[in-house]
Amino acid sequence: MSVDLPFVTKVFAALFAIMNPIANVPVFLSLTEGASDAVRRRVAGTAALGTTIGCLVSLVGGQAVLDAFGLSVDDFRLAGGLIVLTIALSMLQGSSSRAHGRNPGGKQDVIDVESVAIYPLTIPLLVGPGTIATLIVFGHTAESQGKWLDVAVGVGAFLVLLTAALLAAPWLGRHLSATATAITRRLMGMILAAVAMEMIVTSLRNLFPGLGH
């Protein structure tokens, strides 16, 4: 069975644009600030595994899962946008995300650090409404046109790249100065805020069509 290379490229490019590994590396470093390289690698591995599972669920049964809870993609997009906005505001203020904290002695809680692998790194930053909606569409295409192999190759290639980027993040973190890290955190905070507003506005427009006018 031959592979439709243009379609595979389309799948890969769509996921890259939505989950942008390059843009998410500084976010990863900010969310795991103060953690050791070993902990960061565990967070990266957990996030990669969680993202893979999330992509598979979204691709095969994303719409069914939302329907089971009586939710639409726009409901999920609005909630995800609000969560991302709170993270972005924290980054813009130069503080660490409240998704992880520090104990009274000032030492970062390893359990809290590892928890960011699932929330908010995997959901909603990587496997967010845009990712779910895109994979649902590709799932429909694969089902109707018999392109499951092409979708699998495109998604698989992207997940390999994403995993490599996350695992390389601790190395990048060791070579970034405190000033560079602070600047990057605020820059990515601004970008995340813009992404969050786009998610919120899009969901509100779709939920309340009258707002578009």
Rank of each mutant, 00 (worst) to 15 (best):
D4T: 13
F7E: 11
F7D: 10
T9C: 14
T9F: 11
V11R: 12
F12N: 12
A14Q: 03
A17R: 09
I18R: 07
M19N: 12
I22H: 05
A23T: 08
P26A: 13
G34M: 10
S36I: 07
D37W: 03
A38D: 06
R41V: 01
R42Q: 06
R42F: 00
A47L: 00
A47M: 02
A48Y: 04
V57N: 01
L59T: 15
S72W: 02
F76W: 06
R77T: 10
L78G: 03
A79R: 05
G80H: 15
L82R: 00
T86K: 00
I87F: 02
A88R: 02
L89I: 03
L89M: 04
L89H: 05
S90Q: 02
Q93Y: 03
G94I: 10
S95C: 04
G101T: 06
N103D: 12
N103A: 10
G106N: 07
V110N: 03
I111V: 14
S115W: 06
V116G: 01
V116N: 00
A117Q: 02
P120S: 09
P124E: 14
L125G: 06
L126P: 01
L135H: 10
V137R: 09
V137T: 15
G139F: 15
H140D: 14
E143Y: 06
S144R: 13
S144N: 08
S144A: 09
Q145T: 12
Q145H: 15
G146C: 12
W148K: 05
W148F: 11
W148Q: 15
A152K: 04
A152D: 06
V155R: 02
A157I: 14
F158H: 09
L162N: 04
A164H: 11
A165M: 05
L166V: 12
L167I: 12
A169T: 03
P170Y: 12
G173I: 13
H175V: 08
S177N: 12
T181N: 11
A182G: 08
R185S: 14
R185M: 08
R186A: 08
M188T: 06
M190N: 04
L192K: 01
L192S: 00
A193G: 13
A194R: 03
A196E: 02
A196K: 04
E198I: 09
E198L: 10
E198P: 00
I200R: 03
L204Q: 01
R205G: 15
R205W: 07
N206T: 13
G212K: 08
